[in-house]
Design a binder for these strands. Structure first.
Lengths: 229, 229
DNA sequence: GTCTATAACCTGATAGAC
DNA sequence: GTCTATCAGGTTATAGAC
């Protein structure tokens, strides 16, 4: 018998219980793999109360995702801007930009392991009804990082950078899915080393000299949208 | 015997129709996102006939996946062994090994776009009932490529190579999901250049000099298994 | 092998008492 | 805000006629 009450304080509302339960279950089994009844049971609340607080399953899913995704993206931009300010007029080292990009995601994985699965799921193959929310939340972020990278990689074609950034995101996402099986969160300096290794891998790919010509490449949208329903 | 004859109506059996429909729909919407009724309708066959031919939804899903996954992996190994034979006693260049690893996957994406989505899905976050089949099919493959890479990257710690290979797989998977939106399959030399760029990105990361020490790293299983049901 | 009918259960959503 | 009861429709799987 498993009791699901992460925070035992008295202001742990039905709403919060539901969001936490949804984070766990949606992350583990995906949108279609979990029903409202299962969510209500996991949260220890009534089924009727569940639909009352969010109106629909879709709305609950969206809110569950955005709750942490928003703050994570804000932190990303904050780190980048801060680094740029400190660097003054000089372009940032590529590995510094990549660090700002993935550090908040890495940290989020340590603090909220079950959200990490949901995040990876939604950036890899988001349900269609979530796609617009992701785009809106992620686009300004992507643009600012893209600009910063272009400044530090003079001569790199726009499209090639898009492609390589996509590769880097892939490395990050697969890592995210595996994070909770790794011996992390034990030793802070060890964690830092793993993060550095990932930053290093991605930076090496971004900075490498391209072998072929890809002049007719088209921009790659990310993440993709799929048909559903 | 009966090679895949996707549209020739004469021996395009109910079984094959179902597999093709399952490939499309499962790839697009995932295991939980598609019902047997939907599959039967898409395949243009009766619902009763659907369960008759495979016994269960799980079995249909597994067979749909393995049908192409098996031949893809065989081709991977064949390319690697052929390259090793040609090289004689010399260790292969890393980019050559990576090429053997991802070329069949790339090609498969050109030939069977809807399978590519299913493949990416299952390597990224496979349903639990599929995990054993994947492991059994993929493990010998991974081991042989891992050995080849170690030979070409002397001094690289086992665990670090596992980690970096995981990064590379991530790059590949995200690319797979986006393939059908790219201007590929038009010009063969263009396709080849895109493939080379991916090989190049991954090889750069694999070969790069590591910044921190990760001596206590543990082997990373891939792909992950999740609880379901 | 193919089809219909149906069993047994789960789905999201809602109406209305408390 | 929380609960019960219920809706209309979905799910997989099976039994048995053709």
């Amino acid at each position: 018998m498993k009791k699901s009450a992460p925070k035992l304080s008295s202001d742990y509302t039905t709403r919060d219980r539901l969001l936490d339960a949804a984070e766990r279950l949606f992350g583990l089994r995906g949108y279609d793999g979990v029903g409202m009844r299962m969510l209500a049971e996991e949260a220890g609340v009534n089924l009727g109360a569940a639909t009352y607080h969010f109106g629909s399953k879709d709305a609950l899913y969206i809110e569950t995702f955005l709750r942490r995704f928003r703050t994570m993206n804000a932190k990303r931009l904050r780190l980048l801007r801060q680094a740029e300010e400190e660097a003054g007029a000089n372009p940032l080292p590529v590995c510094k930009i990549v660090d700002c990009m993935i550090r908040p995601l890495f940290q989020s994985g340590l603090e909220h392991p079950s959200f990490q699965l949901l995040l990876a799921r939604n950036l890899f193959m988001p349900p269609a009804f979530l796609h617009e929310a992701i785009r809106k939340e992620l686009e300004p972020n992507i643009m600012e990082f893209h600009t910063a990278l272009l400044r530090s990689l003079p001569g790199m074609p726009d499209n090639l950078l898009h492609l390589r950034t996509m590769f880097g995101m892939g490395a990050l996402l697969v890592f995210s899915v595996q994070m909770d099986r790794m011996p992390l969160a034990r030793d802070a300096t060890f964690n830092e080393n793993v993060l550095k290794e990932m930053v290093h891998f991605i930076s090496a790919g971004l900075q490498s000299v391209s072998p072929p010509s890809l002049e007719e490449w088209l921009p790659v949208p990310f993440p993709p949208d799929f048909e559903r329903r």
